[in-house]
Design a protein around this nucleic acid. Structure first.
Length: 992
DNA sequence: CGGTTCACG
DNA sequence: GACGTACGTGAACCGA
């Protein structure tokens, strides 16, 4: 694989690859991908090397934009000792040390180059950029074309006729955050710097560069610099005539800091006459050394590329052993666990199929090392930076961009994101390294009460800078409960993408093992208790807004939160992958953040007049009932007090058969009162009715109007994504998942939920989704058949159990079968069923026995879940979401059987929850694709509520139904069809 | 702030 | 064999 050295000339094509900058980009690209690809089986980090090899191979094989190289050099930085440090000791002074996982990949990268039949080029005291510049200039002089493979802006100064830059596509094409390949010529340079390539250094000299710590002139950014250079021609002319500049501050700065500008220019200007140790003749491209490449790639365990090169070259893979020096020593390999299963396939609808069973063999070693690393860095509250200027903020923006990820947290005046004013925000780049940007802290001592505290950043400008981070597709935003911050930023018309949410990552790996709030996670995983919100803002009566908090205190609190979030992310990132939960997280959790934020910010319209009228009616009826109750009781008492009521009913009046609650009080639940009413007693009946009316009034008709947002005129609930043990959502403030529907009086409240003018509400709900899931997981042929044929499932159950025909069935018989069906889902017991149906326990027991005889698969399923939970401590949904039940180990039999019932119910409820989550994740795109403008407003476990323009309703209904019915696909083909009923009307009552 | 009750799936 | 009971939520109210 050797070719005779030959200098490039006319018609040749020289490729100069910036190996050093590529290493970093490949690394940050790799950590955003499925981590199982980022390590060799002995946990050697290789992700960046893999991406590097892919690009290297493509370049040698295909060239760039159809042109193949005659000369090719992969050029690296030799060490930190750039001659630039001699000019300016702080050059690149802010650079953090490279990530730990990247360090071993530096030498591997050079090994890769050699293995492919090339020579890595590097030279002491010079950066890769200088070598590239020198080779570039030599080649152009000799008449050759040059392609610089890099995206580094510092190389843009080299672009000229015959020289282009090429930014290769990053990583795997479908991977998140990957960029397409891109050619950079004069036009692109002009777009970035506002000048032609030969003037780029002058612009950089003025604007400086925070990532390399090039100072530039204070107060001058790229825009201003470009304008000045274009006006005055070049840097020296500008500095000579600086006195002419009109803007006072700018003029002074240019005069005062002319020296800085000249040093800066020297720092950014690339050296084009390096005395090369590797002569340009040696860059001659020899073609791929397939054998060497395969040996290397085998040792790295990059199977896809290994195979591809073998196929291309016609070599037999088995003939080539892995590179001896690099392969895993045999002794290690024998104990190394098997590699995890292949990654999920991406299907055409964009939702990945879940990976196989949990990667049980994956060592926890990585997680442990991450954890140890995190705890090793102490929390130092006073080390956090308070950002007091836009320049300081810009530096953080630049660092975030360079790093590719940043933890982010907003501080506001309210827990309600839609009523909150942004007071400040914090960022964290690495453990212990965080800042807070105060925007709107108010000085209470100010006599006029609204004075702004000193030392803050202009909020409008700061949000512009923040937008550069939050909307940058190449920067991963990391938050804890990011839905909140997404809503806050949404109010400023700023989007947040891409993102990770540590609360949700915790939920997928630790669902059921405690809550997922930040303070709790910090204590649990980092052994550190962060400053509590109440310590900063007080609580109850003494609660103050965050804008009243002194900035120093605010920094300690807010920056710490970002620091904690970043550390938690590093930990959960490793755990989510190690525990095989990536697909669950990415398909069932993460997409819901924006989906729910959108739903919450839309809100739903309510008719306050209807509610006010109902409140009046309920009040009147309740007052009448209350008078009658006092009359019947013979005394006035607080009807709303179960204690007083119990004393009257079972004490004073001496009604027999009273039951006590766990605390020894008389139980007065509706069930008990209704039993008494059935015995002909008037008082309990009236109390039941009174309770219903006062419940409807206080919880709904009185309360709902107080939730109307004054800005939108609508009601905005808040959904919690990580609150339940099963994967369901929960809704609060107000809870719109428990709006009455079961009674006629209650349903009236639904008529107050209305569509905006010109629109209708669409309600689409899954029919019997949990029973369908049960039919699937327990594999019950009769149930499956009944769902296939669309027959009445409860009637079928009754017919099967009691041997009566479906036609003309006694409603009582059907009701019993229905109760049993639901009981099964809840982990049935004879006691519970007896209670539900008000029948003797023996009778209930007999029904259950009969049921199990007819549907033996049900009993198998229940036993299976109990055993599984006992063995693993968790059960799973059909998509693989885990739900932990640590209390399954309990010695207390009653507690244990409680957990067993949970273990039976959870996969059913949880799978149904997963299905509707999948539907929600896809819904927006499906509607847009169909050209429809319907918007999702609410989710009620098995129902989605939309608002749609009247003229689009007919077209919307089938789209919604299709997405919901197909939500399990393609990950899973259920054994039963899913059925969705969708209707539209002007209010929720009629649509439902 | 825990207990009780009741609205929903 | 004991043990308390259907599964999952959130809100209002009482009373200490």
């Amino acid at each position: 694989m050797t070719s005779a050295p030959r200098a490039p000339g006319q018609g040749d094509h020289v490729f100069l690859v910036d190996g050093s900058s590529f290493i970093f980009r490949a690394y940050f690209q790799s950590i955003n991908q499925d981590a199982r690809y980022n390590y060799r089986s002995d946990r050697l980090p290789t992700g960046a090397v893999r991406l590097f090899c892919n690009v290297l191979h493509k370049m040698i094989k295909e060239g760039v934009m159809g042109k193949k190289p005659t000369h090719l050099a992969i050029i690296f930085d030799k060490s930190e000792d750039s001659f630039r440090k001699e000019i300016y000791p702080d050059y690149k002074g802010h650079r953090p040390p490279p990530p730990e996982e990247l360090v071993p990949q530096f030498p591997l990268m050079r090994d890769a180059v050699r293995a492919f039949g090339l020579r890595p080029v590097e030279q002491i005291r010079y950066e890769a950029d200088d070598l590239i510049a020198t080779y570039c200039v030599m080649s152009v002089r000799a008449g050759a074309d040059v392609t610089i493979v890099s995206a580094d802006k510092d190389l843009m100064q080299l672009i000229q006729p015959g020289v282009v830059m090429f930014d290769p596509a990053s990583g795997d094409q479908k991977a998140k955050g990957s960029r397409p390949e891109r050619l950079i010529g004069e036009a692109e340079v002009f777009e970035k710097f506002g000048v032609t390539p030969d003037k780029v250094v002058d612009v950089q000299a003025l604007a400086g560069d925070s990532t390399d710590n090039v100072p530039g002139v204070p107060g001058i950014g790229v825009k201003t610099a470009a304008q000045l250079i274009n006006e005055y021609g070049d840097l020296e002319s500008l500095l000579a005539r600086a006195g002419e500049i009109k803007q006072e501050k700018r003029r002074e700065n240019l005069i005062e800091h002319a020296g800085l500008a000249r040093i800066s220019r020297e720092l950014v200007k690339l050296v084009t006459d390096v005395k090369l140790e590797t002569p340009i003749e040696d860059l001659i491209a020899p073609g791929l050394d397939a054998k060497g490449a395969i040996a290397f790639l085998k040792a790295m365990e990059f199977s896809t590329l290994t195979r591809r090169i073998a196929e291309d070259s016609g070599l037999n893979l088995d003939d080539i052993p892995p590179d001896e020096k690099l392969k895993i020593p045999d002794s290690d390999f024998s104990v190394a666990p098997a590699r995890p299963a292949a990654k999920a396939v991406i299907d055409t609808t964009g939702l990945p199929v879940p990976a196989g069973p949990a990667d049980a063999g994956t060592p926890a070693a990585l997680v442990e090392s991450v954890k140890a690393g995190l705890i090793a860095i102490p929390f130092k509250t006073d080390s956090y930076e308070t950002i007091g200027s836009l320049e300081a903020l810009d530096a953080w923006v630049a660092r975030a961009r360079e790093q590719g990820y940043v933890a982010f947290d907003t501080e506001t005046t309210s827990l309600d994101a839609l009523q909150a004013d942004l007071v400040g925000f914090s960022l964290a780049l690495e453990p212990g390294h965080a800042c807070y940007v105060p925007l709107r802290h108010r000085d209470k001592a100010d006599l006029f009460g609204g004075g702004t505290m000193a030392g803050q950043v202009d909020p409008v400008e700061a949000v512009k800078r923040l937008r550069l981070i939050l909307e940058d597709p190449s920067i991963l935003k990391i938050g804890q409960n990011l839905k909140y911050d997404t809503l806050v930023m949404g109010e400023q018309a700023v989007k947040v993408a891409p993102y990770d949410d540590t609360m949700l990552m915790s939920y997928v790996v630790d669902g059921g093992r405690g809550n997922h709030g930040m303070d709790e996670l910090s204590v649990r995983h980092l052994g550190h208790k962060p400053i509590a919100f109440s310590e900063v803002c007080g609580s109850g009566k003494s609660l103050i807004g965050f804008d009243q908090v002194p900035i120093e205190r605010a920094t300690a609190y807010a920056a710490e939160d970002a620091d904690v979030t970043l550390r938690l992310w590093l930990l959960f990132k490793a755990r989510v992958v190690a525990e095989g939960m990536t697909t669950i997280y990415e398909t069932l959790e993460r997409p819901l953040v924006t989906v729910l934020a959108n739903m919450e910010s839309r809100g739903i319209m309510i008719d306050r007049q209807i509610l006010a009228r109902l409140s009046g009616e309920f009040a009147q009826s309740a007052a009448r009932l209350e008078a009658e109750i006092h009359e019947l009781a013979g005394e006035t008492f607080n009807v709303g007090s179960p204690k007083q009521l119990g004393d009257i009913l079972f004490g004073k009046m001496g009604i027999p058969g009273g039951k006590k609650t766990a605390t020894g009080q008389w139980a007065t639940s509706a069930q008990i009162l209704e039993d008494l009413a059935d015995q002909g007693l008037e008082l309990p009946r009236r109390i039941v009715n009174w309770r219903q009316l006062t419940k409807l009034k206080s919880t709904y008709t009185d309360a709902l109007p107080t939730y109307v947002n004054p800005k939108s005129g609508r009601v905005h609930t808040s959904y919690s994504l990580a609150a339940t043990t099963t994967g369901r959502l929960s809704s609060s403030e107000p809870n719109l998942q428990n709006i009455p529907v079961r009674t006629e009086e209650g349903r009236k409240i639904r008529t107050a939920f209305i569509a905006a003018p010109g629109c209708k509400l669409i309600s689409a709900d899954y029919s019997q989704i949990e029973l369908r899931v049960l039919a699937h997981v327990a594999d019950i042929p009769q149930l499956t058949k009944a769902f296939d044929e669309g027959v009445d499932i409860h009637a079928m159950t009754a017919s099967e159990m009691f041997g009566v025909p479906v036609a003309g069935m006694d409603p009582l018989v059907r009701r019993r079968a229905k109760a049993i069906n639901f009981g099964i889902i809840y982990g049935i017991s004879a006691f519970g069923l007896a209670n539900q149906l008000s029948i003797p326990r023996e009778e209930a027991g007999a029904y259950i026995k009969k049921y199990f005889e007819r549907f033996p698969g049900i009993r198998d399923y229940m036993d299976r879940m109990k055993a599984e939970c006992r063995a693993n401590g968790f059960v799973s949904t059909i998509f693989g979401r885990k739900m932990n039940f640590p209390a399954i180990e309990s010695k207390n039999p009653s507690e244990r059987s409680f957990v067993e019932r949970q273990a039976i119910n959870a996969p059913i409820q949880g799978s149904a929850a997963d299905i509707i989550r999948r539907a929600m994740a896809r819904m927006d795109q499906a509607l847009v694709k169909a050209g429809l403008s319907a918007k999702m407003l609410l989710q009620v476990h098995d129902e989605l509520v939309f608002e749609a323009p009247e003229e689009e309703v007919e077209a919307t209904l089938p789209v919604v139904a299709r997405v919901m019915e197909g939500a399990a696909l393609p990950a899973l083909a259920l054994k039963v069809p899913l059925q969705v009923d969708a209707r539209a009307a002007h209010n929720w009552e009629e649509a439902h």
